[in-house]
Design a protein around this nucleic acid. Structure first.
Lengths: 183, 183
DNA sequence: GCACGCATGTAATTGGTTACATGATTGG
DNA sequence: CCAATCATGTAACCAATTACATGCGTGC
């Protein structure tokens, strides 16, 4: 039994061989992990024969280790896929701050939600850029990009839902304030 | 500078004094933390004068420590509220599994999304139950329950959005399979 | 000259989970 | 009798972040 990140990395390697650096970038949208976590994990997976690597020399760039999944790795992924999905871990500082709105005024509260909206808009732009890179003919189950396609769709619609929510909250903040600040 | 969970706990204590056990239950919907993390944190916050506690004896139940926020604690919360919100940390095993759908068939993939839908339905029912406990007259900015009100609303609409997404994916799995399994 | 991207790694620390430990009361 | 709820805590471990460390090439 490996940890979730390990399975995530193996899942990416099942599609195509990648360097650790590459894996770090690709897993970002779905699971945040720094290189300092990924490199030692890959070394461990290699020791335990889930992956193999080959050192590739590059001109103009540092050498890289290109990892390939083994049959052991592929088996592990298939087994993992059979288990029901763990519940989503959702940790949002804004929700803890929202809990404290009653202590402050609109001038403190509103910027929190405006800042969040900007974060979300940046993300949407990024996700949509990635979506346009998936051609129509790759948007079916058997395509290796089917996962990216459905996940990017979810990411965009979730972010849009949250922007709507932020607007709703900001509206409430404005409406509610008028009643209380008549001075 | 405290960690996020500490501010979350202080934010709850700013509303009303609570026991550690109580805090653990109340913070669950917004930040998952076990009692084994909360109790030592509270002890640390007490040592650093952000909170105080009083031991309360109860008939028929074990003694409890009821924590109260101090002025130092309240100041810390206000300062924290002035800072922009950290980005949401969203870790979902299902998204890593979704990435691997191309490797399997409908019989492996569909149960993943069906299981997720059940998880989401359970959560929605729970959130809606909590929502009904917030009376109309508490659903405004100055109410201590304003935070719960807007957060539960978000939680419900996000969960509903995800159920829709699951249905969309399951539909794609069914449609896509027909084309390929004509034997 | 400096920042940034590519590329890899380790060390120290903090954050979070699982397991161990205790003990009373209530309801099935 | 067993499980669940209330109530608190510690110990061991795993997960994750931050900081330290190196080095080349490109573009500003």
């Amino acid at each position: 039994m490996l940890n979730t990140l390990s399975y995530g990395l193996l899942g990416l390697l099942a599609k195509e061989p990648c360097s650790g650096y590459d894996l770090m970038l690709r897993i970002q949208p779905f699971w945040q992990a720094k290189h300092s976590q990924i490199y030692p994990l890959l070394a461990k997976l290699e020791r335990e024969n889930y992956v193999q690597y080959e050192r590739i020399e590059q001109r103009d760039k540092p050498d890289k280790k290109v990892y390939t999944i083994t049959d052991v790795g592929r088996e592990a992924v298939m087994e993992w896929l059979g288990e029901p999905p763990a519940e989503t871990a959702f940790r949002d500082e804004l929700s803890l701050k929202a809990n404290c709105i009653w202590m402050t005024d609109r001038n403190t509260a509103a910027p929190l939600f405006l800042a969040r909206m900007k974060q979300l808009e940046t993300k949407i732009a990024y996700y949509e850029k990635l979506l346009t890179r998936i051609p129509e003919e790759e948007r079916h189950i058997r395509s290796k990009h089917f996962g990216d396609y459905i996940l990017l769709n979810r990411a965009v619609s979730l972010a849009e839902g949250q922007i709507e929510w932020c607007n709703w909250v900001i509206q409430m903040l404005e409406d509610g304030q008028d009643v209380l600040t008549s001075d």
